[in-house]
Design a protein around this nucleic acid. Structure first.
Length: 150
DNA sequence: GCCAACGTTGGC
DNA sequence: GCCAACGTTGGC
C-alpha cells in the first residue's frame, strides 16, 4: 500500500465536506506530475493525508483513502466548468482523477509550521522548497510518524 | 495583498 | 529548442 498527500483549499472543499459527503471525485487537478501520481501510482485502499492549503491554518486535517482507479476527469469536457480544457477530448482525455473516501478527521490539525520542526520529516516532498504539487507521495515512515503526532 | 517559485504558452 | 511573458500556487 502506498501513501499520499492531497491538498485542498478548505474554503472550496474541506475535510468536513468530505465527512459529510463520504466520497468525492478529486477533480480539477491540472498538473501533469500530480495527474501521473493519481493515474499511475494510486491503488484502491491507499491512505491519503488530507491537507488544507491557502487558509489561516495550513496543515493536515484528516485522513482519506483512495476509492477508485483513475478515470477521466469529467470537468475537462464541460465548457461551463472552470476546469474545462479545450485541448482535451473524450477519445484522448488529458486529465485523470480518482475518487477518495472519508476515513477520519484528526482531533487537531497538524500544522505546516509543526511539520517543519520535525527533523524526521525534513525530507518530505511537502516541505521541499518551491514545491507546489497538490498530489504527492508520502513515505511509509513519514506516514506513521505523522499519524503518531496526533 | 505580496511575492517567490514554478509551469505553461507561444513567438522566433 | 530557446526563453520572455504570463498565470498559478500557496505561505505569509
Amino acid at each position: 500500500m502506498n501513501h499520499w498527500l492531497m491538498k485542498s483549499e478548505p474554503d472550496t472543499f474541506s475535510i468536513d465536506d468530505l465527512k459529510r459527503k463520504k466520497r468525492e471525485a478529486w477533480d480539477g487537478v491540472r498538473n501533469y506530475q500530480a495527474r501521473n501520481f493519481m493515474r499511475d501510482g494510486m491503488r484502491v485502499g491507499d491512505g491519503v493525508l488530507f491537507y488544507h492549503s491557502n487558509c489561516t491554518e495550513p496543515g493536515i486535517a484528516g485522513i482519506a483513502a483512495v476509492a477508485s482507479d483513475a478515470y477521466p476527469d469529467p470537468s475537462q469536457f464541460d465548457p461551463e466548468s472552470k476546469y474545462f480544457d479545450p485541448g482535451s477530448s473524450r477519445d484522448h482525455p488529458r486529465w485523470m482523477l480518482v475518487d477518495v473516501t472519508f476515513v477520519k478527521k484528526l482531533k487537531r490539525t497538524i500544522t505546516l509550521e509543526e511539520l517543519k520542526h520535525h527533523p524526521a520529516l525534513e525530507r518530505m516532498t511537502l516541505l521541499r522548497k518551491g514545491n507546489r504539487l497538490s498530489v504527492m507521495p508520502v513515505d511509509a515512515a513519514e506516514w506513521r510518524y505523522i499519524l503518531d503526532l496526533e
